[in-house]
Each structure stands twice: as structure tokens, then as C-alpha cells.
Design a protein around this nucleic acid. Sequence first.
DNA 1: GATTTTGTACTCGGATAGGAAGTGTCCGAGTACACATGG
DNA 2: CCATGTGTACTCGGACACTTCCTATCCGAGTACAAAATC
Lengths: 172, 172
Amino acid sequence: MKLGEGVEQAIHSVTMLAQLSDGGVLSAAALAEFHGVKTSYLLKHLQALSGAAILETQPGPKGGYRLARRAGEITLLDIVLAVEGPEPAFRCLEIRQRGPNPLPGKPTRPCEINAAMLRAERAYRAELKRVTIADLLTEVARGDDGSIAARGCAFRALHERRPGQQASTQGE
Amino acid sequence: MKLGEGVEQAIHSVTMLAQLSDGGVLSAAALAEFHGVKTSYLLKHLQALSGAAILETQPGPKGGYRLARRAGEITLLDIVLAVEGPEPAFRCLEIRQRGPNPLPGKPTRPCEINAAMLRAERAYRAELKRVTIADLLTEVARGDDGSIAARGCAFRALHERRPGQQASTQGE
DNA sequence: GATTTTGTACTCGGATAGGAAGTGTCCGAGTACACATGG
DNA sequence: CCATGTGTACTCGGACACTTCCTATCCGAGTACAAAATC
């Protein structure tokens, strides 16, 4: 019962991408720098998100990642499943049938233990499905005195880019 | 997001132990044989359950494991936590503060992402906490035509032992 | 023959190797800009 | 001076090592029974 570190990085990255202006993209290097993580590793998970149709990619210089759909349409469950894989955490190996005398004519009835574990996992996923990236942004803004938003804005002003469009005044 | 195989083995073992008569014990070797798993590996998890005060051990010949409390007082959550460890699946590394400009004077406000993930995990654990071993036995009995119970009874008649008491008629 | 003593066999317990998955890194394919060149 | 062609630099994408955790295994500590020796 352990989630990889990539999940946290992915959620933070999506949250950041949700805040940039329409049509803008952010490179993986910029996201990694902002979060203080390894670029190459973050790239792996961004690719997973891209493969899950959560992010869109823009190759080439001035390229980067952007959201593939509205922040209100992206749930935490989508991200977790994209990064960790869709298979459930509990895997029933039917060990009740693996003994020396495995109930000969008995057809495969659902294992009660498996059912209970899956029920719990459904509750877990349902809770994650209830939370969208837009909800997260709202919550953060609610408890923010402005400094968090300011930091994000400053960062995006520096690194956000719009492919196929001349950058206005980018110092670096 | 993956649980080890030991969880399933542990739950099945506890379920079996819950069905033996008062004062009786079952050896790890017997449990492993019944479930068709490696004894040495099962031992590790039985030890974890013992350390969590879910099982009691009886050393020596005719020794084995027994429940430390009533089956109705043992939840699936107890077993999962004992085997997998109590730490939550999602670990917030506070990467939002690890960037190059980490909000200087900002005190540690709870991360919204972390809060959402933990909320989901609480739902998961709450669902597991609702199910006791006694509930599982009831459910299994409800959908059983008698063959499952018969198999378990036959096995226990062969392998169940009572320390400090002469075995009545044990063929082997 | 009954009791004590000793020995053995069996149990759990923790420390020790092997393997799979997560973590971290590398190089290759593709694209847009920038410059140089020609008209 | 303007349009075109070429080159370069930067991006994402997938394939390749390293580390950690799960899986599997071994040997040691402890106990109850059984047999043997003694009274």
C-alpha cells in the first residue's frame, strides 16, 4: 500500500498547468525546476499523463505541455490511474482454491475477501473522483493571502510560452 | 498503489484461525499447506499479526497460532495495517516548497493535494474498518451450500491442536 | 511401578539472499526559429 | 530590401542502468512431549 512519488509530482504539475493562460504551454524542465525534482523523472510521468489524454504536448522549441481538457474535467483519480496504472491495489490470487483439496466441482464464486477489499478500493477511488483540479485551485485560493498565487504567477510569467506566437518580453 | 501478496494470505489465515474451536491452535505449516503458499513467507506475516496483538502464539511442539481476540473485534483494517504498515499510501514530500523560491515567510499550511489524498485514504480505511472477520464468515456461510464449511472442518479436524491437552484421536 | 531426569523433535522468531518494481539517466526523433544566401 | 533555403537549438519520446522494497529462505531460541534411568 504505497504510492510512488510520481503521483505527487504529477498532481502538482497538472495544477500548475491548469493555471496558465489559454493556449500557453510549460516545458517539463520548467515544471521540474519549480517543484525541485529531477526533469527526466518528471518527464516519464508527464508522458503517462499525455498518454492518458490528460495533457497535450507541443514538440519543438517553445514547446511544452498543456491541459488536454478543462481543469474541472480532470479528477485526482484520472491522474492517479494514469501514473500508477488502472489495476486495483488488491489482487485476489484465489489462494482459497490453491490448497491440496480445492473443492472439486465448485464453480468460481466471488471471494468474499476480495469483494470486501475491492469495495474499500471503490470508496477510495470514488473519493478521488470527487475532487477535480479546479476544486483544488479553489481550495488553495480560499486559504491563500495572495503569496502563493503571486509565486505561481511570477513563475508562469517567466516560463509560460505560446507556440506559434512571438514571445513578448522574455528576459531569458 | 499495490498491496503485497501477504495481505491476502494474512486475511485468509486469520479467517481460518477464527473458525477453530476455543483454545485450539494451528501451526504456520498447516496454514501454508491449506492455502498452497510458502511456509517461510507466511510466517513473516503471521509474526506481524502476532506483533500487532491480532494473533497469539504458542511455542513448542503442539504449538501454533490462535486469535488474540474475538473474530468480531478484528477488522480487515487491523490486518492490512499490521502487514503493510501504518503509514499512509500517499506521502506528501512538500514539493510545492522545494522550488528555487519557496515562499520565505510562509508557515507550513496543509497541502490541499495531500489533504485530498488523505481524505480518500480515510474513506478506504473506514470501509475496511467496517468489515470484521466475523462478518466475512457470515457472508461466506450465507452463500455456501456446505462444501466450503466441510472442507474447512475436515482440515481443522486433521491439524487443529490444543496445547497442554492430549490429542484425542489424531491419526497422523 | 512411580518419579525424576534427560534428550529430542517440533514450534516460532529474527537475520539473511534473490528478484521485481520504482527511481533516475541517457540518447534519438521531430519541430520552430534564426541566420545566411540569393533574387 | 524581401523571399527562400539551410542549419541549429530546443522540445518530447522511448530505451537503458541503479536503488529500494517485496519475496523467498535459512538458522537460532524456546518449549512440551517421550523415553530412559533411578528410587
